[in-house]
Design a protein around this nucleic acid. Structure first.
Length: 445
DNA sequence: TCTGGGGTCCTAGGACCC
DNA sequence: TCTGGGGTCCTAGGACCC
């Protein structure tokens, strides 16, 4: 038996925790550069605003209905998510943190409990201890638990907790026949369209379809989904998150960028961030991909979205080395005359340094030292045991300082100082829980 | 003026191996 | 006249998730 606990309008709710005056008001949270709506309060959903709507298209509606907007505050969401997950951990020995605002719990062997009551206890505890409203879906498979959560959210009569396993066969049929097949976990826009054309429109239709036929027509994923809907569990709880196989850091610029120097700063800076994530999961990378993009919405402008993969002679996690490789790649794909909207780096071929293979030839003849006045020692020297240790100590120190003093305290000079390309945020909010200067202040009357 | 940022899995087809 | 059988690895593209 599984439970899926999911926070309601998570990002919006995070703002409401420390700003209760937002309760009952229409609130949106915007993506980077205040581009799109990535979270909407119920009041905003009721106005018909779709997920991902560009903010500038909403200006008028926002004025008319007093919609309040916030730039995204990932520090806040990340911290509240950790607290949320820690509270949930008390309710089952087995927990899978599925996303920033969702968590599966294993309820197997909880037969002695009334699971609906137990779900209500979870809701109240999370609300009281963290301040977040959540809903709980309970069912014998993960796919059904997701669906049960959807029901708990949409149908008020269940007060935020829905246990699918309590339904009789007839009640199950009735419920599943009333839900669109596109609501099922793993059935996206494309698949729902194709399924609908085959006469499979509701969840019940899908549950009752032939799994083998669907496997042939689509894939094993769809077959598994059908089995899961029938109550046959195919997806296990994944308690330990496996290390990432690739790490991407990419961002749109605060304004369109033309000059190579600005792109260099951005790429150096994204690489440093990616390397930080890499070291955090104790991996090395074997190759870096660098990519650029012009603004696809400006159809009148010339478009260019190049990318290049720069292999490393041997896997590394050294910010300086990685940045030098990334900049090497950037200079190969950069073309003047375009207005760039976005750049990114992707670390691929990630490996565990404990089992990695050093370069057979010591230092590689393929890549000489970089020639842009930025030469980390590990590039120009052969990668000796000594230089590897030195790099490791340097990176450890860098990470420690930045963890303690805040991200970006210590950084590459190549990241620049003006950073004209930096993201714009017009509606910032305090990092209430992670910065002394930004702690909320309670006033006594 | 203005449009996010991450990730994963599966399949088919081609190249190559013995 | 006539040309096997079994397998792996890689990549691109498509689909999905939050």
């Amino acid at each position: 038996m599984f439970a899926l606990v999911d926070a309601n309008n998570f990002y919006v709710s995070c703002h409401r925790v420390f700003n209760p005056s937002l309760k009952g008001k229409p609130v949106v949270v915007l993506s980077n550069n205040d581009g799109c709506c990535v979270a909407r309060s119920n009041e905003v959903k009721a106005l018909g605003v779709k997920m991902g709507t560009p903010w500038f298209q909403l200006r008028e509606l926002a004025l008319r209905h007093g919609i309040l907007a916030f730039s995204s505050n990932y520090t806040l969401y990340g911290d509240l998510s950790r607290r949320f997950m820690r509270v949930l951990a008390q309710f089952s020995p087995y927990q899978e943190v599925y996303s920033i605002d969702e968590c599966f719990l294993d309820f197997t062997g909880f037969n002695h409990l009334d699971l609906t009551d137990y779900g209500q206890t979870i809701r109240q505890r999370v609300l009281q201890w963290v301040g977040l409203p959540v809903c709980v879906g309970i069912a014998p498979t993960k796919t059904l638990a997701k669906l049960a959560n959807h029901v708990a959210k949409k149908r008020e009569q269940y007060q935020g907790v829905f246990d699918y396993s309590r339904l009789s066969r007839e009640q199950q049929d009735e419920l599943l026949a009333s839900i669109d097949v596109g609501e099922v976990w793993g059935i996206g826009r494309r698949l729902s369209g194709r399924l609908a054309r085959m006469g499979i429109a509701t969840v019940k239709d899908l549950r009752d379809a032939d799994p083998k036929t669907l496997r042939r027509q689509f894939s094993v994923v769809v077959e598994r989904t059908v089995l899961e809907l029938r109550g046959i569990s195919c997806l296990d709880l994944e308690e330990v998150t496996p290390p990432k196989k690739e790490i991407i850091t990419s961002r749109s610029f605060g304004k369109l960028v033309v000059k190579l120097e600005d792109l260099q700063q951005a790429v150096a800076s994204y690489t440093a961030r990616a390397a930080e994530k890499l070291r955090r999961q104790h991996s090395d990378t074997g190759a870096i991909q660098v990519f650029l993009q012009t603004n696809p919405h400006k159809t009148g402008e010339p478009q260019y979205h190049p990318s290049i993969i720069v292999p490393l002679v041997e896997p590394s996690d050294d910010t300086g080395l990685l940045a030098s490789r990334a900049l090497l790649g950037l200079r190969q794909i950069y073309k003047p005359g375009y207005r760039y909207q976005k750049a990114g780096v992707m670390l691929m071929e990630l490996s565990d340094p404990k089992t990695s293979q050093p370069d057979l030839f010591g230092t590689s003849p393929l890549f000489g030292p970089p020639s842009f006045g930025f030469s980390p020692p590990s590039v120009i020297e052969p990668a000796t045991e000594q230089s590897r240790l030195k790099s490791q100590r340097l990176m450890d120190t860098l990470d420690q300082i930045n963890r303690k003093m805040g991200r970006g305290t210590l950084r590459l000079a190549a990241e620049g100082f003006q950073q004209a390309w930096k993201v714009r945020t017009d509606y910032p909010s305090p990092r209430y829980t992670t910065r002394w200067e930004e702690l909320p202040i309670a006033h006594a009357k």
